[in-house]
């Protein structure tokens, strides 16, 4: 088990990481999700030993390895732009870590063949890495990190520079590969979909701290944190006053008063943030909970994203024409409390 305990780091005089703690179990894939500049790459580099933290510890199997140099940590790191050695061919790149560990040549060749097959690059041994396509380079980088059987495998925005189709294909392969091995993996990205697709558990990094963590489905279901909800893009964020209703709580906004799903009790009249799920709204004939003019309609395969005059958006199965006034009914669980809005 890899443990990261209370890591602190400043960058250019500004605090970047302010006490980050988490752990990764054997065989688990954890995704560090955060916007660019949130310090996720720095955190990876600290775990790999390429940078020293100003406070906190990194432990592997209970042993403190904070001050161990990177070449003795047995970790694998896949860089954003792959960092393949341009003067070595594919096989030599993949074999580099094995050579450093002193594997005999025959075992090395065998392992290289094995790993290249795993990443679907059999027969590429003698190719120059500079001649490969982006996707192939990415696979070589993965094979190079996998070959020495690292105890922790890390990905730093590893698919960031590939186009969408290729990214999805690689993501799928990577997912299977990670799930079939028992390596602890940390995957860093700023892309919510990528994170959801690959992670057993997502950690959301915001202002130098992990603000939320949990399996992807659970996070989307219950973001529980204003910034996390905005970053994940789960719906329309709105602010209002908490009101105790007769059988369930209500939120009083300038658009009207609506039922609220809320796990905590709040003081009556307290300002709260909440999220309105755009899928839990339907257009009705006659009186609804809310009447609002349509601004724009965007076709999205099986549904239409409808932008409304009050700044919200909803998903509807049939497109209204822009300019018409819609009567909308909210489902009981459409609005979910995000806490006190801080």
């Amino acid at each position: 088990m890899l443990e990261v305990i209370d890591i602190h780091k400043t960058y250019a005089g500004e605090p970047l990481l302010r006490g980050v703690s988490f752990h990764v179990d054997q065989g688990e894939t954890v995704c560090l999700l955060g916007p660019s500049g949130s310090g996720k790459s720095t955190l990876l580099r600290i775990i790999a030993g390429l940078e020293a933290p100003e406070g906190g510890r990194v432990c592997w199997q209970g042993e403190d390895i904070t001050h161990r140099p990177p070449h003795l940590r047995r970790m694998g790191l896949v860089f954003q732009d792959y960092a393949l050695f341009p003067h070595l061919n594919v096989a030599e790149n993949v074999a580099f870590g094995l050579r450093m560990q002193g594997w005999p040549p025959a075992a090395r060749a065998e392992r290289v063949r094995e790993v290249l097959a795993q990443v679907k690059l059999s027969g590429f041994e003698n190719r120059r890495v500079t001649e490969l396509s982006g996707g192939e380079q990415q696979r070589v980088a993965l094979a190079r990190a996998l070959a020495p059987r690292p105890c922790v495998l890390m990905f730093d925005e590893a698919l960031g520079s590939l186009d969408r189709a290729l990214r999805e294909e690689l993501l799928e392969d990577l997912r299977r590969l990670l799930h079939s091995s028992d390596v602890a993996a940390i995957y860093v990205t700023h892309d919510q979909e990528e994170a959801a697709a690959i992670a057993d558990r997502i950690l959301i990094l915001h202002e130098g701290k992990i603000v939320r963590s949990g399996p992807p489905a659970q996070l989307w279901e219950n973001p529980g944190h204003l910034w996390a909800a905005q970053f994940l893009g789960v719906g329309n964020v709105l602010f209002g006053r908490w009101r105790a209703g007769s059988d369930h709580p209500l939120v009083e906004t300038d658009q009207g008063t609506f039922p609220l799903v809320c796990s905590h009790a709040h003081a009556d009249g307290e300002t709260i943030a909440a999220v309105l799920r755009p899928t839990k709204v339907e257009a009705v004939d006659g009186a609804g909970d809310l009447c609002v003019r349509v601004v724009d309609v965007v076709f999205q395969q099986e549904r239409f994203k409808v932008y409304l005059e009050n700044g919200w958006y909803v998903y509807l199965p049939r497109p209204p024409s822009p300019g018409t006034v819609l009567s909308l009914r909210l489902q009981m669980d459409a609005i979910q409390c995000l806490g006190d809005g801080r």
Partner: peptide, 26 residues
């Protein structure tokens, strides 16, 4: 690219071997 040397270090090369296997050939 500093990442080339960093990649070599993570893959188990100490300072001298990074210089000998990566920096010098480049």
């Amino acid at each position: 690219d500093p990442r080339l040397e960093q990649a070599a270090r993570v893959l188990g090369a100490d300072g001298w071997r990074v210089f000998w296997h990566i920096t010098l050939p480049l």
